[in-house]
């Protein structure tokens, strides 16, 4: 059985959105969960978060950034093409309940996994403030959708081409120090962003949930390559997470572990590029 690409859209340069036919996954999806996919017989298994599911159409939505061999190869596929393997939904879903005031912080492509979480939180009666940041204006995605679920949407760009110039940490700091201290924060984006967000929330002890993206292989708890240290304990991100209490996470370890195969990733990408 193959998994057909039903829709393809380029959301921003290098950021693509696919709807994939995977009815069994769509039926069970809950915010916070992810897929493991393999493009073809010679492909590697990579994890991608589920951004949305439509149980009636039997489709799941992924949003990915072209980073290396596999994501570029995926990005070169077209509507109607098929992905060989799709496994999911995996991981522990986000605990959706009433927290009160929730701040969502999205960095770059992290807006995609954050959106269904914030949507569900809003529907459960939480008030949502969202901070969406990226390097530059062109890379801001899901602006309108995030606006809809938020009572306030703050935009930041590193280069100042849209919203406030600077990092997402600045407005978050302002919000925490202001009158409306959030009861919980969800931060999804690059590891360094999530680390910095936690450094801001730690001071005031604001509950902070992060979604970790270590290297994964099976996604079912059998290899341990996704192990991370949380509160001094070793956890497998694919089955114990990927969402964790950010204030307890050893980010530096994950940042280093994600460089395990840097050399091989370069070789793989070069080979792919030269084959085009």
């Amino acid at each position: 059985m193959a998994y057909k690409i039903l829709e393809k859209e380029e959301l921003a340069p290098g950021i693509k959105q696919y709807d994939i036919h995977a009815p069994r996954v769509a039926e069970k999806f809950k915010p916070g969960q992810f897929l493991v996919i393999r493009l073809h017989e010679k492909g590697e298994r990579i994890p991608l978060t589920i951004a949305m599911a439509d149980a009636r159409a039997g489709s799941v939505r992924i949003v990915f950034q072209e980073m290396g061999k596999t994501t570029f190869e995926l990005g070169a596929m077209n509507k109607g093409d098929s992905i060989m393997d799709v496994l999911g939904p995996l991981g522990v879903p986000t605990e959706i309940k009433k927290y009160g005031l929730v701040a969502g912080v999205a960095g770059g492509v992290g807006a995609a996994p954050l959106l269904p979480i914030l949507k569900a939180l809003k529907e459960t009666g939480n008030r949502v403030i969202t901070i969406l940041g990226s390097r530059t204006k062109d890379l801001l995605i899901f602006r309108r959708e995030l606006e809809k679920v938020s009572s306030e949407l703050i935009i930041t760009t590193d280069d100042g081409t849209a919203g406030e110039k600077g990092f997402v940490t600045f407005p978050l700091k302002r919000i925490i120090e202001g009158k409306n201290k959030p009861d919980a924060v969800w931060a999804i984006g690059p590891l360094i962003m999530m680390k910095n967000i936690c450094n801001v929330t730690r001071n005031d002890g604001v509950r902070t949930f992060v979604s970790l993206n270590p290297i994964m292989l099976d996604g079912t708890g059998m290899c341990g390559c996704c192990r991370v240290t949380v509160g001094g304990h070793v956890k497998f991100s694919c089955v114990d997470g990927p969402e964790f209490d950010g204030l307890m996470v050893d980010f530096d370890e994950i940042i280093v572990r994600n460089r395990r195969f840097l050399e091989q990733e370069r070789i793989s990408y070069e080979k792919y590029k030269n084959s085009l």
């Binding site: 010679k42 298994r45 596999t70 292989l217 091989q264 070789i267």
Partner: peptide, 21 residues
């Protein structure tokens, strides 16, 4: 498990012909 899965299931011994390192 990680080592053997990379090599046996995903044929990392044929990297870069196979994608898994």
């Amino acid at each position: 498990n990680e080592f053997l899965t990379r090599v046996n299931l995903l044929k990392a011994y044929e990297f870069p012909e196979y994608d898994t390192p």
